[in-house]
Design a protein around this nucleic acid. Structure first.
Lengths: 162, 162
DNA sequence: ATCTATAATTTTAATGTCCAAATATTGAGT
DNA sequence: ACTCAATATTTGGACATTAAAATTATAGAT
């Protein structure tokens, strides 16, 4: 709890000078702040499993696939992150033996990341922990959580996503 | 535009296994994605002014104050970032002559960051650029932008913010 | 006066993200 | 076959963020 809300204060400052832009400024600031808060919460939950959120998402994605493997590039698309970030995340998982990398037999430019048995176990435990913690959103009902998604999808749409 | 939406797909996968947690998972993922998109847009607008969003916010905050200066610690509170991040941002601004640092006469533990005339000029230009670009949210009406803020405030409240 | 706990800031080290450039491989056209 | 543009991934560089330790200064208690 903060004595006063910095975001409300920023909106006040902006309204006094550029009233027609204050709402957009505040929306951005809210997104940045919420992301920061939620990421911290989620990573707290994942810490005992030695996973970052990015690593968790990569592992979870592989566990979902039919054969437990996916080309690096496809992972970047699905996770919506830069290819270099995938390289980074997979390297770390590989060093822990949770994932293996091999060249695709079909196209040797392609690197297939494959989840190991150990990786599946860690993914299952971490998933359970996050679900129990409701991803740091225990304070929201399912309806409220869905509302957040809907509102942000509107924003993603105008941003060229979706 | 993506052929299919990775977030919708993730929701489908989650629903098939842990239906009671799918909405919370998707809300988190949406927040992360939107933050990434908006930060990229905002930083594109700021690039010609050689400012990152973090640096812009620090400069803007100083320009708002009565005397154009604030203790480092207070800046961290207002910007809701780690003290080390403030140190980092101010160091960079100082090296460009946009901000000066001096010890507080009242308490010599305190460092006062003070915006210079040059800093005010850059802040004004960058602010104008962001306002013109509606902070990357040109696709949203003021009402829609306000709705984003309201929805996320609900989330911030349950997360102990506000 | 002196000691000690508290406070403000910086430094250091570990991570994570992105971009741009480099490397390797494929595939299409001639 | 041969050339060349396109594709997949990694590497190196620039930043940002955080936690934890170190530094310096203040203020309250004895």
């Amino acid at each position: 709890m903060v004595e006063f809300d910095p975001i409300t204060e920023a909106h006040r400052q902006w309204s006094a000078r550029w009233p027609e832009h204050a709402d957009h400024m505040t929306a951005i600031t809210s997104v940045m702040r919420v992301q920061q808060l939620l990421l911290a919460r989620v990573e707290d939950v994942l810490k005992p499993h030695s996973l970052t959120f990015a690593a968790f998402e990569a592992l979870r994605l592989l566990a979902f696939t039919r054969h437990g493997s996916l080309p690096m590039g496809k992972m970047g698309e699905r996770l919506m992150v830069h290819p270099a970030s995938v390289t980074n995340a997979i390297r770390k998982l590989e060093s822990r033996g949770l994932v293996e990398r091999r060249l695709s037999p079909d196209d040797r430019r392609v690197v297939l990341a494959t989840i190991t048995e150990g990786g599946r176990a860690v993914a299952a435990e971490a998933t359970d922990a996050l679900n129990q913690a409701d991803f740091g959103l225990a304070g929201l009902t399912r309806e409220q959580a869905a509302e957040v998604t809907v509102t942000l999808r509107l924003l993603r749409t105008t941003a060229g996503d979706v």
